[in-house]
Write a protein that binds this DNA or RNA. Structure first.
Lengths: 349, 349
DNA sequence: GTTGACAACTTAAACCTTTCAGTATATAAT
DNA sequence: ATTATATACTGAAAGGTTTAAGTTGTCAAC
């Protein structure tokens, strides 16, 4: 019943306390501490010293109320599973957190819990003035998150390829190019029947990946067999299922490109369960160069994607924007191929 | 620039605005919206309806200033590397975020960036009143983080075994028992020379792990060879180095227990690079049951540790404490063994 | 010896919410 | 008819910061 705070004995030092000690007004103290130049440098250093001695730290709520900004950026993660398989979000978080901490900003993380729809989560952060800007990852078609921030004219930066990339700040790699590189690599290895396991189709990036695949297949004169195109989520299990489907076709592919490393692990497992030797009987490639890809058996050919750097830069862009600077999209990152045993006979001793 | 009433940008709705519309005082509106019972239910519902229509959302900074609490809990992560290898923190974050979001709390994440020492980071969050409580993970000996929060009498919960566990709230598994289970499992397999790769010794848990190892070795009458005890950080590379050291001994171990899954991967790699077949020539076990352990080659015998659940429960305890409830440590979780090929000949076909 | 400029402050308002201490009215008890 | 009690509100203060506008004093210029 009684929700009264138990104990908060610590008497917080306020500007008023300092003002009393130094014999100046509260305003003078505030302006001194904030390095305004209408305070003599003598008193300024004196005030600062006293503040230091008294252990003053500004009350952020008060400052925020007054300034109408929070120096905090928001990040909403999807429902995180107990054994979060997806290193993508770990890297996003690492990049955003490191960069914003470096710049004196805080990061507020929320999970998109069920029972609350996603735009509600965004309203909560935005309308409650909990954050000054948002980082939005893995943009989707007709993304309601983007609608919400657009309506509110709320500062945001997107990590990934947004639907209308001329309207929002974003940073991304070129997945069309990435898929192209993978397909060409496989074609050079002599593959002709190449299967695809794409990521969920509501993601804008999935279309890019598919486009890259189709372009290069057509360019190589190989034609496109729609029956060899499957979709998976970002789990090994999803990849496993998609792999099974592809391998049970009457004419199964000799190579499969998977649009993410994690489901690629599942595809490999599915093939191995059917007695196929990856890299020998079936080539598999991933996307992202997760740590798991390196430690997979066999190690997975993949595309390097610096998710961490994207997050860091996105954060930097957002903060710059919040500070009123003019920010432009960085150029799309050119993907680079990492060849490992899963797709290369030469590496297979 | 002008913030006139005709401005297209929706000005924020405040209690005052609502009060004007409904013709009541600001106090009445506040109390109505907060379900105080000294407002008639008629006006209460009316006020709520108007608030809803006007799109009112409380200004959190103002509320926090007044209430002197933030409904936010803090989590400081170590410097996160670009390719964060350690799933431990991902799970911690997932558990804390999910649980606190569920309870209407926010999570503030900071990275322990270099150039700022760790207790400074804590002061920043605590003295700046950015958060109401902290989750502290992987407690160390004479942990300065715990000193800071103890000095300030700042609410906190520890995930892991703290040095003085009668003084702080904590949740942990029984690593003494965990190590014991592993050693006994190996002894049953016929191993006599068992090596150890421990986690960094500043962690309290490292002593527990070692104690479990030593106890069970002595109990089995095998004696302890201090030369077979190495230490590593939480990276594959660290494990690799430790593994090399152990395997280069005049009488190398036939089995190695590693106090964490991630360095265990490195140990396996080191052994494999020496031409040893894991599970056959050398048994290796890990700790934690990371996803990587399952997908390692060969799959890694390990101890199940529900980091996610720990984090979730820690968060629950912290919030309960913040609400003034009386909270007690949950019982230590009994570890369970997950046997995979890396330590079991029978599984090795 | 007035004017103006400048430095170094002070005062008061504002940011928005919550809560404490009243006040006014109606109802019930004596 | 008076007092007590409950209901439904109001006014003002408090929380700590920043800033716009004003004040004081000094010094220089004319």
């Amino acid at each position: 019943m009684s929700k009264s705070a138990t104990s908060k004995v610590k008497a917080d030092v306020t500007l008023k306390d300092i003002a009393e000690v130094v014999g100046k007004s509260v305003a003078a103290v505030s302006r001194a501490l904030n390095d305004h130049n209408d305070i003599s440098s003598n008193t300024r250093t004196y005030i600062k010293q006293v503040a230091q001695e008294m252990g003053y730290t500004p009350n952020l709520s008060a400052r925020r109320l007054q300034k109408r900004s929070t120096d905090t950026i928001g990040l909403i993660l999807p429902v995180l599973s107990p054994r979060s398989a997806d290193p993508f979000y770990s890297e996003i978080l690492a990049g955003v957190t490191n960069e914003s901490t470096r710049q004196g900003f805080d990061v507020l993380v929320s999970a998109h819990v069920n029972g609350m729809d996603e735009s509600e989560m965004y309203h909560r952060l935005i309308d409650g003035r909990r954050v000054d800007g948002m980082i939005i990852v893995r943009p989707r078609w007709r993304d309601e998150r983007l609608t919400v921030v657009a309506q509110r004219q709320f500062p945001h930066v997107v990590v990934g390829k947004p639907e209308f990339d001329d309207e929002v700040l974003s940073i991304t790699d070129d997945m069309v190019e990435g898929a192209t590189i993978l397909v060409n690599h496989l074609i050079v290895q002599g593959h002709k029947r190449i299967g695809v396991v794409n990521t969920p189709l509501d993601l804008v990036s999935s279309a890019k990946f598919l486009a890259g695949f189709k372009n290069s297949m057509l360019q190589a004169g190989l034609g496109i067999n729609e029956g060899l195109i499957e979709t998976s989520n970002f789990t090994p299990k999803g990849g496993y299922r998609a792999g099974q489907l592809l391998l049970s076709k009457p004419e199964p592919p000799t190579a499969i490109i998977v649009a993410d490393d994690i489901p690629a692990l599942g595809v490999m497992a599915a093939a191995q369960d059917q007695g196929l030797e990856i890299g020998h009987d079936l080539a598999v490639t991933g996307y992202g160069n997760a740590l798991l890809a390196e430690h997979a058996q066999p190690p997975l050919t993949t595309i390097q994607r610096s998710t961490y750097n994207f997050a860091e830069q996105a954060c930097e862009m957002l903060i710059a924007k919040l500070k009123g600077k003019d920010v432009k999209d960085p150029p799309m990152v050119k993907p680079s191929l990492i060849i490992r045993q899963s797709s290369d006979l030469a590496l297979w001793l």
